[in-house]
Design a binder for these strands. Structure first.
Lengths: 367, 367
DNA sequence: ATGAAAGCGCTAACAT
DNA sequence: ATGTTAGCGCTTTCAT
């Protein structure tokens, strides 16, 4: 049974002495087929090593049992875990998974969505890299179910899965303040060609809670940071807010170095995602600062090394795999035809307290 | 242009006032089409928001421009990096990527290969989870190009990409010995329902170098360990060889605890892959052992935390992403029709010396 | 350079 | 319960 040409249902039918329609019914498990016939067809199929051509099936049924995913970076622990979750759920239903990488660039994302649609996927899971420039998503929604993950798009009413970044980081920062910290640094991506400066963005978000969902996670985490300060009646020193501007550990490392080099450096540091944590940790380590004596540290997103580095690093754990699983489940439901209004699922984060937080060494530092 | 039914080439042709054949030529960029016609067709297509149905194209051309990957665990840094490399290369050529997860279980792998073939992928990249039970791969090769990654299958002559595990670990252990270590522990997966005990396997591998390629990486790394000892005229204490039996950090942690709990514990530890390193590190950390004073440590596979944990952990770095890229390139060449004999690509590893290795604290320990 | 027609492998009506 | 027929949307002869 070697060679380029694969065996078709017609050959199976001929060998079994039935029509292709009957063979199809027996093999595809649709329509009627007597037990005897089914047996004969199945035997013929086995003998010929028949394998259905899913392209042909998809062409006619209009469904491919394949779902498409656009991730920011397949290699990051964050997306890798999400993908794993997605893969588990869809795999169990016999669906295939077409995965693409946007590298957090809009044109790549557009191209990816285009390719996935041409390949006729039954649904899409996207972690959009821009919360406004999303025309390609808007018109994809016209003929495909779409589920957003980690981020939302302003005005695009589709199912989404994420965590409550504002509340989680607010809580986190509140605890640092409660421990006595007054100068808390934050290292966050905060890219914003379209959004303007920090004050503008936060002002709008604070006054209009619904607009928060259009914010990128890193902005939401900054918002939580600001709100926690406000809750405590503390001022926010803009110099402690470091905008890395890109998802890059190296860039985060530079910003951290710069932040920690100042004379009046913070007594605690909050990193807004895994890449920021990795970069910050490298800088802290390189500068020979001791945690938590010289600097307290809390990260958003729990990375495996945080558990066994000494001292352990406290973190806000996101249920990454569960996020992927939930997104996949929601999408499959839509593919099955579920017609309810769009759902916005916020999974709970978990605060993991390790040993990277202590009261500031000296009396509250001041300028 | 909203709704379930997408626009077909026939509608574009009608709007442009040409036949479907001509429209196809203009859109698909094959055959002849005058400049004027092409313009008209393209304009019509744009106007209707035409999107080719790649299923239909694939059905007729017999090629889908999609490649399938079976990874062990999409979530591990090792596979995630490889997948990223694959994704970059195939994406650049406009290919799609169907990714599946075997979880290192043969039945899952068989199912995955089956699904990918039914979906008519143009080629397969597999990290086989068994080097002998691979009938499904053997017969896949009959009608698809296949590239193996990280592992090889005895007697299956196809392109493969990996690193020289025997040489790398041999070198690594030789250095530990050179530093003065005499009792070196090894934590490795070493699953082997089919292979028998350590002695048998190693005896066969040592005497027959070609059979080495049929060995799993963890076995190859153990072989390097044994050879390094032999090179130095040192005996191998079987009690220092810990077979974890599965790819699991938790299991590795248990084995490491057990190994380090013995009175005559090793002065150095070699971990055979990333999961083993993570598990071992957790155990070391939990036991409060200081690296390198109480224990030297070297890991196979460089993980990001190894760079900034204090002290830094020395490791053998595998060019993971490059492995993925190379595998993808080789596969694409085969898909283009390359007919040379199968190629076996061994990429160079890089020894990264950090601060986790020091001479043993006391005079050579003995029982 | 363009069109007519056949057909990729399969499923879905519609007969029987 | 089974067979006949007509396509799914596209590419590919083969004419013209």
């Amino acid at each position: 049974v070697k060679g380029r040409t694969s065996v078709t249902i017609a050959e199976v039918a001929r060998l079994a002495g039935v029509s292709t329609a009957t063979a199809g019914r027996a093999l595809g498990d649709y329509g009627y087929a007597s037990e005897a016939t089914r047996e004969r067809v199945l035997k013929a199929a086995r003998k010929l090593d028949y394998r259905p051509n899913l392209l042909a099936r998809g062409l006619i049924t209009g469904r491919t049992r394949t779902i498409g995913v656009v991730a920011g970076d397949l290699q990051s622990p964050f997306y890798a875990a999400i993908l794993r979750g997605i893969s588990d759920v869809v795999g169990r239903q016999g669906f295939g998974l077409l995965i693409t990488n946007s590298d957090e660039k809009v044109p790549e994302e557009v191209r990816a969505v285009e390719l996935l649609r041409e390949k006729q996927v039954d649904g899409l899971i996207v972690s959009p890299c821009d919360t406004v420039a999303a025309g390609h998503l808007r018109d994809a929604v016209a003929d495909l179910p779409l589920v957003l993950i980690d981020r939302e798009v302003a005005g695009l009413e589709v199912d989404s899965v994420g965590v409550d970044s504002v509340a989680s980081s607010r809580d986190c920062i509140a605890r640092l303040i409660g421990t006595g910290h007054r100068r808390i640094g934050i290292i966050a991506e905060l890219e914003s060609s379209v959004w303007g400066d920090v004050e503008t963005i936060l002002a709008r978000a604070k006054s209009d809670p619904t607009s928060q969902k259009g914010l990128f996670p890193s902005w939401q985490r900054l918002l939580g940071y600001v709100l926690a300060h406000r809750d405590a009646g503390l001022p926010v020193d803009p110099d402690l807010i470091r905008r890395v501007g890109e998802y890059s550990a190296a860039a985060a490392e530079r910003q951290t170095h710069d932040l920690l080099a100042q004379p009046d450096r913070p007594s605690a540091l909050f990193t807004a995602d895994g890449l920021m944590s990795t970069g910050a940790m490298a800088a802290i380590s390189a500068r020979g600062l001791r945690i938590p004596d010289d600097l307290s540290l809390v990260g958003f997103d729990d990375l495996d090394w945080m558990a066994f580095v000494r001292p352990g690093i406290s973190a806000v754990a996101q249920p990454r795999r569960a996020m992927g699983e939930a997104a996949a489940r929601m999408l499959l439901e839509r593919i099955e035809g579920l017609e309810t209004p769009h759902r916005r699922l916020l999974l709970a984060t978990q605060r993991i307290d390790r040993d990277s937080v202590a009261p500031p060494a000296t009396a509250p530092q001041s300028a």
